[in-house]
Write a protein that binds this DNA or RNA. Structure first.
Length: 489
DNA sequence: CGCATTTGACCTGCGC
DNA sequence: GCGCAGGTCAAATGCG
């Protein structure tokens, strides 16, 4: 039996045993542990004791045993029965294969631990991101709810003073009630614009216009302008409501009442530019220009000499908030959306509040540049009522930044050298900057309106941004350039 | 009939 | 100074 393995094969051990020399014995005893020999020795002791080769094995085992005894007898026993486990973790191991496996095992365990650690970190990070997302969503919802509440409050407060609403009579009382329940509706009504000036007559009553300008519902109603329009239609029982706010820029699309006083064909622009004057109060100097085609461009200029209706306030608030978000890239969940100052302070554009209105509400991306607030802030009502106004008057804001930003887009269009060539000082006087902005906005309006492709591209870009951040609109107090894509929807 | 829109004329600013 | 373009005015028109 002993020879059996030898004849089979010739393993190095057997060969060595066959040719063992005194030198080899020493080497084996000191430098190696021949467990196979040990095992074989036990077998031979149990079965065959007269084999010559067993002597060598016996010697070998004995010497090894004596060596081990010097260190650890119990370990000696374990080594004989369990190769791997006996040597694992032992610095005294002298078996090459065992050592490499041990190292391999150690490395594997280490890597495993590392991976688990990494996984744990990723889980933590993932949870943190989820919390941030949840917080941002909550903030957004909270903002919207508060906006609705504020609008309702102000509408109730102003309803008795609002001569426009007062003219509606008792018969409209029910509808007025409905208005309050539909507060955030305006942005949903932003249907495709198609000939701003030509579709004026669709809103026949002030009540209806107020209804339309009602407010920004965005999340509260269907995002499909047509569907929402039909829904509104059903409530109002009027076929005219098929048209939307954007189709009636002269009316109350932004919460104010406007009267068209002129229309002009702009050079290089296939679509006419309409001029509107605020008629909510006698002598109100605020005017706006509307250029409509694939993109509706609205430019406001001047200061209202009367309190703004809730819808206008709401629009201003939402547009400004959205603008700040857009311009600042992203907003941390820590940010308080109800604090425009905080928000805007984080914005890339220090002046975002002063001019911004990138309204990407639902399917209609809108850029609004509001020039209605003078640099001096000579409208106490606006200033005190609208936090946006307050921010607009903060020192250090740079009204020239937005036109520069927009100007880059227009430069791409290569149709407005005037705009692309615009250069503004780093800290211009607000008056000068506002003037420049107005010019820039005009140029931008012409450029955007004159190029359907660019308009579509701009709309798509804005929509993309908005969709990605789930944010809505903005406004500002200084300049309101609104562009809304009406072709794509 | 009253109000809002339309539209042509006029005014103003800017560039050449 | 002239021409052009943008902006405004106001009479005409349409609609409820």
């Amino acid at each position: 039996m002993f020879r059996f393995p030898v004849s089979l094969g010739g393993s190095r051990d057997e060969t060595r045993h066959d040719q063992i020399t005194p030198l080899d014995e020493c080497r084996v005893v000191v430098g190696e542990v021949d467990f196979f020999s040990d095992k074989r020795d036990r077998v031979s002791r149990e079965n065959i004791n007269d084999d010559e080769d067993d002597e060598a094995s016996k010697v070998h085992v004995k010497m090894e045993s004596s060596r081990v005894e010097d260190n650890d007898r119990s370990r000696d026993v374990n080594i004989g029965l369990n190769l791997l486990t006996a040597n694992t973790g032992s610095d005294e191991s002298t078996v090459d294969d065992g050592l490499s496996m041990d190292m391999e095992d150690k490395r594997a365990k280490f890597e495993n631990a590392q991976l688990q650690e990494e996984l744990k970190k990723m889980k933590i990070e993932n949870q943190r991101l989820r919390e941030m997302l949840s917080q941002a969503t909550n903030n957004f919802n909270s903002l919207q709810m508060q906006l609705v509440a504020v609008m309702r409050q102000q509408e109730q407060r102003n309803s008795s003073q609002d001569h426009l609403l007062a003219t509606e009579g008792n018969a409209e009382g029910g509808k007025r009630q409905e208005v309050q329940t539909m507060v955030p509706r305006q942005f949903m009504d932003l249907g495709p614009s198609s000939g701003a000036a030509e579709q004026d007559a669709e809103v026949s009553s002030e009540e209806r216009t107020m209804l339309r300008s009602g407010s920004p519902p965005l999340l509260l109603e269907n995002s499909n302008p047509r569907e929402s329009g039909k829904r509104l239609l059903a409530r109002e029982e009027s076929p005219e409501s098929e048209s939307n706010a954007w189709g009636n820029p002269n009316k109350i699309t932004d919460g104010c009442q406007w009267r068209k006083y002129g229309q002009k064909m702009a050079k290089g622009n296939p679509c006419p530019r309409a001029y509107y004057r605020c008629t909510m109060a006698g002598g109100c100097p605020v005017r706006k220009q509307v250029q409509d085609r694939s993109i509706l461009i609205t430019t406001y200029e001047g200061n209202h000499n009367h309190p703004l209706p809730p819808a206008a306030m709401a629009m201003a608030s939402t547009t400004t908030a959205a603008a700040s978000m857009l311009l600042s890239g992203s907003v941390s969940s820590q940010d308080n959306l109800m604090n425009p100052t905080n928000l805007l302070a984080r914005a890339i554009l220090p002046c975002s509040s002063s001019m911004a209105t990138i309204s990407a509400s639902a399917p209609f991306p809108t850029i609004t540049l509001d020039l209605t607030n003078s640099p001096n802030g000579n409208n106490p009502n606006m200033t005190t009522n609208n936090p946006l106004m307050q921010f607009a008057q903060r020192p250090g804001f740079n009204p020239g930044v937005l036109p520069q930003v927009v100007g880059q887009g227009l430069y791409y269009n290569q149709q407005q050298s005037k705009f692309s060539g615009l250069q503004l000082p780093a800290q211009p006087l607000q008056m000068a900057a506002t003037s420049l902005m107005a010019e820039s906005v005009s140029a931008a309006s012409a450029a955007i309106g004159s190029d359907p492709n660019f308009a579509a591209a701009l709309a798509a870009a804005i929509t993309s941004i908005i969709n990605g951040s789930s944010h809505q609109n903005n406004n500002s107090n200084n300049t309101n350039l609104a562009t809304s894509n009406g072709d794509n929807i």
